[in-house]
């Protein structure tokens, strides 16, 4: 098991690094960072000053190796745009995104698990159809649109929630619903089919025929077995939420990593973009690894 994890960690790091190289060269090739930092009405001297100050006039390869060696000395680089170390930006912004990711996964759980259970217990009933309808809808609604509509309804027409910002957990409710909704279809379907399979499995049928019946049976046996795959999929979904936070955070003005990523790309803040791509990749892979380990742990058949 340890060997397996170590091997996967090496893959994770090398993938992160590959991506950082790709990002670095692509970004440097397409944009003029000096202009992006200076802004639209900057004077000629100001743009030139920035170009020289950050050494944008030197070759891309030289700059990449500078950055690369810095990483090994624990220096993640300095953001051009924010005038501060990238690491402190990450530390500042991460809590908001973690809160958002956790809350949105909670939303996913709160909606999809009960729906999935009810749908599985009453296959082809009205509830089942409704659950299917919700899944189909959630899959087809773009989340930037859902965000705008949510603001329109729940912040303006009925001012229950704040429009934007991240001061209190209350501010995170609407964004979490928007971000969480996108995972509902996958988790709900998995819950439903998983539970159906277990209910139809022989041992449950036997239990039913020998007098056990009803909710207790479902909770004690069927649900426990059906939840196992759901847990690992939830871990993967949690990993997805970080990279998926870009649009949601921008629409709701949440000051997290996703908005930082968008601002950094638009502001051509290459050091920050690079680290963020790296971080998002690592987080994604970490949660996938976690899902694999969970799978192996929960399902003895996979434990080799």
């Amino acid at each position: 098991m340890l060997k397996f994890i170590a091997g996967r960690l090496i893959v994770v790091l090398s993938v992160g690094l590959t991506l950082s190289i790709v990002t670095f060269f692509l970004l440097n090739y397409v944009i003029d960072p000096a202009q992006a930092i200076a802004g639209e009405d900057a004077l000629f001297e100001e743009i030139e000053q920035i170009r020289e100050q950050y050494g944008f006039d030197r070759s891309i390869t030289v700059r990449y190796f500078e950055w690369f060696t810095g990483i090994f000395q624990g220096d993640l680089g300095e953001s051009y745009y924010w005038n501060k170390p990238v690491i402190s930006l990450l530390v500042d912004r991460a809590p908001e995104t973690i809160t958002l990711a956790l809350m949105s996964v909670s939303v996913t759980i709160l909606i999809s698990i009960p729906l999935g259970i009810m749908a599985a217990l009453n296959p082809n009933s009205l509830i089942d159809r409704m659950a299917l309808g919700i899944a189909v809808t959630a899959q087809a609604v773009p989340n930037f649109w859902l965000g705008l509509i949510m603001i329109l309804i729940f912040a303006l027409a009925f001012p229950i929630f704040p429009v934007s910002g991240d001061k209190t957990l209350f501010h995170f409710v609407l964004p979490s619903i928007v971000l969480g909704a996108s995972s509902v279809p996958a988790v709900m379907r998995l819950m439903r089919t998983g539970l159906l399979d277990v209910i139809n499995a022989d041992y449950i049928r036997t239990a039913r025929s020998s007098g056990f019946y009803g909710w207790r049976l479902i909770f004690n046996h069927a649900l426990r077995n059906a939840l196992l795959p759901v847990v690992s999929v939830l871990a993967v979904q949690l990993g997805n939420k970080f990279g998926g936070s870009v649009i949601t955070e921008s629409v709701f003005a949440i000051n997290g990593l996703g908005r930082l990523a968008l601002e950094s790309i638009l502001g051509a803040d290459i050091p920050t973009v690079q680290i963020l791509v790296f971080v998002f990749a690592i987080i994604f892979l970490f949660f996938n690894l976690l899902a694999d380990i969970l799978n192996a742990y929960l399902d003895p058949r996979l434990r080799l």
Partner: peptide, 17 residues
Amino acid sequence: TCQLALPGLLLAMTIVF
């Protein structure tokens, strides 16, 4: 793994740029 781990939106933005 690389493709899955890369935030697709970021890559797309860069390439379109």
